[in-house]
Every structure is written in C-alpha cells, then in structure tokens.
Design a binder for these strands. Sequence first.
DNA 1: TATGAATGAGCGTTCATTCAT
DNA 2: CATGAATGAACGCTCATTCAT
Lengths: 211, 211, 211, 211
Amino acid sequence: MTDRSSWYCGAVSSPNRPLRVDAARNREHLLAAAEAEFAERGLSVSVADIALRAGIAKGTVFRHFASKEDLIASIVSGHLTALTGCAERLADAADPGDALWEFLSFAADQRHRHNIDFLWAVSEGDARVTELRDRLFSGIERLVVRAHQVEAIRSDVTASDVYLLMCAPVHAVENLPNPSPDLWKRYLGIIFDGLRPEGANPLSEPAPTVF
Amino acid sequence: MTDRSSWYCGAVSSPNRPLRVDAARNREHLLAAAEAEFAERGLSVSVADIALRAGIAKGTVFRHFASKEDLIASIVSGHLTALTGCAERLADAADPGDALWEFLSFAADQRHRHNIDFLWAVSEGDARVTELRDRLFSGIERLVVRAHQVEAIRSDVTASDVYLLMCAPVHAVENLPNPSPDLWKRYLGIIFDGLRPEGANPLSEPAPTVF
Amino acid sequence: MTDRSSWYCGAVSSPNRPLRVDAARNREHLLAAAEAEFAERGLSVSVADIALRAGIAKGTVFRHFASKEDLIASIVSGHLTALTGCAERLADAADPGDALWEFLSFAADQRHRHNIDFLWAVSEGDARVTELRDRLFSGIERLVVRAHQVEAIRSDVTASDVYLLMCAPVHAVENLPNPSPDLWKRYLGIIFDGLRPEGANPLSEPAPTVF
Amino acid sequence: MTDRSSWYCGAVSSPNRPLRVDAARNREHLLAAAEAEFAERGLSVSVADIALRAGIAKGTVFRHFASKEDLIASIVSGHLTALTGCAERLADAADPGDALWEFLSFAADQRHRHNIDFLWAVSEGDARVTELRDRLFSGIERLVVRAHQVEAIRSDVTASDVYLLMCAPVHAVENLPNPSPDLWKRYLGIIFDGLRPEGANPLSEPAPTVF
DNA sequence: TATGAATGAGCGTTCATTCAT
DNA sequence: CATGAATGAACGCTCATTCAT
C-alpha cells in the first residue's frame, strides 16, 4: 500500500488559486492539527484550539476555510481522495478477491487510525464530498464486479453492500475503550467470511440502491 | 418478541418515588421528545429544543433529570434494560442458534428504530448504564455459550465479538439517507453468516476482552 | 442578660392573625433554618434549601413569607427586636457607662453568633425593619444621654456615633477566617477606649444625623 | 498622598502581553464599569450589566477576564496594590505615628470611594490577592513596629489589630444612606484614639494571629 | 392548608465568525 | 495577509415564584 502520510496534497482540498508556499504550509499544519484535535477530543473542539495547535491565529483559519464545516469537509475529502485512489489502483489487480480484501483493509485501517467517523456526518451536504463519494462508489463497483467474476464473493452481494459494510469493522472496534491497533482485522475477517459464497444463506431483504 | 412500545416503564428510568400523574406524563413526553430530537439532529440538540418538542418549559427538564447527561443516560438505560431483558428471556430458548439470531434481531431493530448510537458514548460514565451493560454482557455470554454447544456459531467467536458486532447491521444501514425499515436484516444476515462455522477462515487477531 | 433563645416570638415577626400551633411551629422552624443556612452559606442560598432544612415544602415557605426578601426582613426584625429590647431594659440601669458597654456587648455578640450582617442591607426598605431601627435608635439615645451625664463617654460623641460603631467589633473579627468566639471583645475594648473622655483628641468631622 | 485616580495601571491587574490600544481602553472601561456596578448594586450584578455599562459586548468581558471571579479579583488586586504601595512608601516616614495615621486614612478613603468591601471575600482564594494581602500585612507590621518605638500606639496593640480595624471607619459610615464624603475621618479619629496609649484599658482577649 | 411540579427570566460562559488594525 | 479583539446568539443550568392538585 502506498504512502498515505501526505494524502492532503492534490486537487481536492486545494483552493482554486495556487498558494504561496508559507500559506500552503499553514494550510497543511492546519489540516493536520484539526484532524488530530478532532480525533482526540471529538467534534466539539473549538476553532481556537485547532488554531493554537497549528500555531496560527484563529482568524487565519477562516482565511483558509470558509467555516468550521468547510474545514471538516476538507479533512473528509482528503481521506475520501485517498480511499478512492486506493480503489482505483486496485481496479486491475491480479486477484480480484485479494483486491477487495485489500481495499477493505485500507478503508478500515484509515478509518481506525484517523478517528474521524463522526466528521463524516457533518460533511454530508458538501459538494466535493458528494462527488468524491460517487467516485469512490464507482471504484467499489469495479472491485465488486471483478470479485463476482471469480466468485470471490457471494452472488447476492452488491457494491452497495460493500460500501455500507466498509466501516463495520472499525465501528465494532470503536465500542472498546482501548482497542489493540489491529483488532479491526478480526472483524473484517468475520464480515468478509459473511461475504464469501461458502455457507451463504439467502438474505431476506433485497440490496439497496445507495445513490 | 414482546411489545417494546412502552419499555420506559419499570424501575430503571423511573425516579425513586411515584410521580403525580401529570408529572409522569410530562416525564414520558420528555423522554420521547428527547429521543426523537437526538435521533433527528444529533447530540447537539439543546435542552430548550427538547423541552419545546415535549411541550414543557426548559426548567422542567431539570426537575426530571439532573443534567442533559443524566437525561441521555436515562434514555440509554431504557434501551439497555429492554435489551438485557430480551437476552435474559432468550437464555433458555429451545434453539440456541435461533435465540442468538433473535437477540441480534431485537438489538438491531431497537437500535434502528431509536437512532441513538451516539448517545452511548456520552453515558459511559453513568453508573446505571455501566451496571446494565455488564448485565447485558452476561446475558450475551449465556447465549453464546449455548450457541457454541450446538455449534450454531464458529468456535473462535466469543461473547465479546457478538457484543461488539451487535450494532454493525444498524451502522451499515445508517450510511443510507432513507433506508427501508428492515434493511438491517440484510446485513445481519451477512454478518451472521460470518459468525457461522460453515466456511469460516482463521482470524488473524485474538478476541478482545470487553470488560 | 436575659435569655435570647426565643427572640423570634413577639409581635414583630408574627402575622396579623394568630396561627394554628402547627403553622406557628413551621414558621419557627423555617426562620431558624433560614438563619442557619444564610449564616453558613450566604445570601445566595435557595429557598429550596431553606425549606429542606426546615423540613417543609418549598411552596409552604411562601405561605409564611411573601417573598425571600420578606423572610430575610423577618429574620432581621427578630434580631432588631431583641436588640431594641436589650437597649430598653438597660435604660434605667444603675451605671450608665456599664449599661452602654453591656448594650454594645449584646449587639456584638448577637451579630457575631448569628452571622447575618449581609442580610441587613437587603431589608433596608422593609417597613417593619425601619420602624424597629428607629426604636432601637431611641433606645441608644437614652443610653448615650445617661452616659454623658456621668461622663462615661467623651462629650463630642453622639447616639449616631454609637449606632454606627455598634457593629465595628464584629466587622473587624469577620475579616478572620476562624476567629475565636470572644475576639470581638478585644475590638470592642479598643473602640470603647476611643469613646471615653480620657485622651480624646478633637474630631475633624461633625457627627452625622442618622435618620 | 499621591494621586490614586489611575491605580489600575501597573503590573498587577495588567495581562502579561501588552494590549492593543483599543483593547487596553476597553479593559479600563470594563474595570471601571464593573467597580461602579458592584459598588452601586452589590455582588449580584450580572456580567451582562457590567458589559452594558462598559459599552462592550458580554462576550468581550471573558476575553479580558477568565471569569466573573477573576474580574473581581482583578479589581481587588488593583486596590490592594495601591494600598500596599502606600504602606511601603510610608515605611520610612519621619513620624511613625503620623505614618500610621496616614496609612489608615489612605485605606479608609480608598475603601470609601470604591465601595467594594464585599468583593474581598470572593477573591480570598485568588493567588494574586493572597500574595498582595501578605505583602500588605508586612507593610503594616513595619508601620506598627515603628509606631511602637515612639509610643504612638498602645503597647498591647499588634499589626493584626491594625489590619483588622483598618476598614472599621468605612464600615461605620456605610451604615448611613448618604454619608458626607469625609465622615470616615470622624470614626478613624475615634478608633485611633482607642489605639493610643493615653487612657488605654486592658484588653480581655489576646491579639489574634492573622495569617 | 400543604405540596411539589411547572414556569421562564436570568445566570455565567463558550464559540464560530467578522473585521479593524 | 495575518492577527486577535469584538461580537452576540446560544448553551446548560438555577431559582424565586405560581398554582393545580
């Protein structure tokens, strides 16, 4: 899996005009500080605390992001971009079953290491996030189509199902106060077993249409 | 499955002394309004909005509950009580596999209909909630032990796993803006298939200790 | 000095109509509880806490006293009544100098034991308090006149001065966190020495008119 | 006696960093408005009223002072600083008796013009106030030692006595609704006569230890 | 008459956001 | 541009007072 340490770079979370190098650096500090604060203390951290951690003035935050919501959407966009990139890179992997597994591992690991599930809900109305989400879903669709071709997953499971179950391992783990770092793999294992053809029982409900 | 429409009644979320009928009615309105507001708009709804919805004055909320946190803990306690009761009622069911399935169905249905997962975290310090959570876990342990006896679930799965995965079907469904009411059954089906012995692959991580 | 333990009885703090015995008892409990709460925790104690301590319901407080201010004025009236009674009893004492000393001792002791100086300010507008204050002042005037006759106090000192300095020993002591119970006597001694003819220096300001 | 009209300037009640001129002006307005409101209406004035009087928004109060208590402590600190400075300036005055008289005059005048005795109690836990109080007491000790050397005050009177009696003239005057501006001098005269050796009677209680 | 549930204005405090410096 | 002072609406919560029971 490629280096994810600088996933903020790229077209999504950048403003329209190119920034001066110091402004760009401030922006990076700010995003990193915001994510860390959110992860440690939840949605209710104040913009002042984020600015303090980033080493910039409170007012400057609003020079980079129109609002706190916009800042959150930028963080989410960064993660979404990385996740979409992962799905797209795996689109032509040799083994479609392994590719799907690897994608779900990437997704869970990312969600688990950057504890930002709660940010997701806030940014649901954001246009960038919506667009990225659609791109992500397309990527998942390709992974699922190929996985079906080799019967790596049961035939009644769709891309929507994978999309919806993507975060389930992390959610399970987050019910624990101090989960061991890789515990999510246990629940991904269980859920992935549920997605496999072997031992599959019929599902009473039809698959939903996600978007 | 018994009627769950009036699970607030009972010892847990009731005050020590019997209330006057009008006070009791207000209390019920309040709990229902709070739950509805939380479900629709999240943890950040104000006590004022809850009171408005309940048709009572803001100050009255604090006559019934010492704080917003206490109100939340009371809501959570109510649900936990019902869930624990369900687990305990199923402890001696004829078919342990069906019992576990039924318990997880009850849990998912309850969680889905009362969209208050995020309240859980807030009440973690509450004594009532802690005690009920332990009782719930004991109930799950008995269900899991019996399920193991008849090999209804794979041998490497523990009560902790069931506890942690309990809400996964609901979480999956909640990523959708307007999920159909029973969609959670689809994801419970998939996850339950992952818990069954058939087609189980070894898990890379050991089971955690929940408490 | 006479028994001061039941100074609440009497015309001043009684309502117009005679009370039933239980109501009268409640009223006494209430006044005692209020005074104790005020003394221990200041003006900001709530009516609820007072009622709790008195063992009656909150609403009943308002059956006895029109408002919290009225309750305070009743407490102050009780003390004022006792103090006025003391002054009047001492009006014809054998030694006018001793009488004045004894009056000031009574005043200081009362103020110190019932820590209610701050209640005074609240009840300044109360009619009963105003009337009692006038009666008290008359009593002081008689004590001072007689003290002048025997030259127990310096000639340029008036009843107004005595009235205004009455609480000074207690105020001095109250700057200490844990004053010994009789420390006020030390400061009454010093101030009384200042009131004596011996070693008196001229005063730069004329005596005020109190009322 | 030096000009006391701008005693707020200086290290004590100033923040660590220099303020922008507009912020400094607001801070001064705020302190003045707070003191005036407290003096006129007591401890229970709301922060909103103080802000209104200062012509700033309520939230701005909390930019300058962490809490209402901190604001009060800052006011008290300002007065204490001025008072301590006065005591220290008088430490080497030519006539120790005059020096003590002048100190007590300064104290009474300050207390009388800024009617904030009741703020004192609130700030008792404040570190700045505690330290200043100790410095003030040391200053008083020096004044008293020197006064004893020239027998300007009676031998059985201590620095603690002077400290405790410091505000007595003002307290006396404050029992009057509209005292003339210099009336406190009358009561300082009486009390100071009580502190002199001439005509002193033995005191029944030993001097307390203030700190 | 006594109760205590209900009220609602008011409290101290926080914080996203704006804008003069 | 960056700053941080100012804003003001909103928050959770308290409490004297009222009034239905």
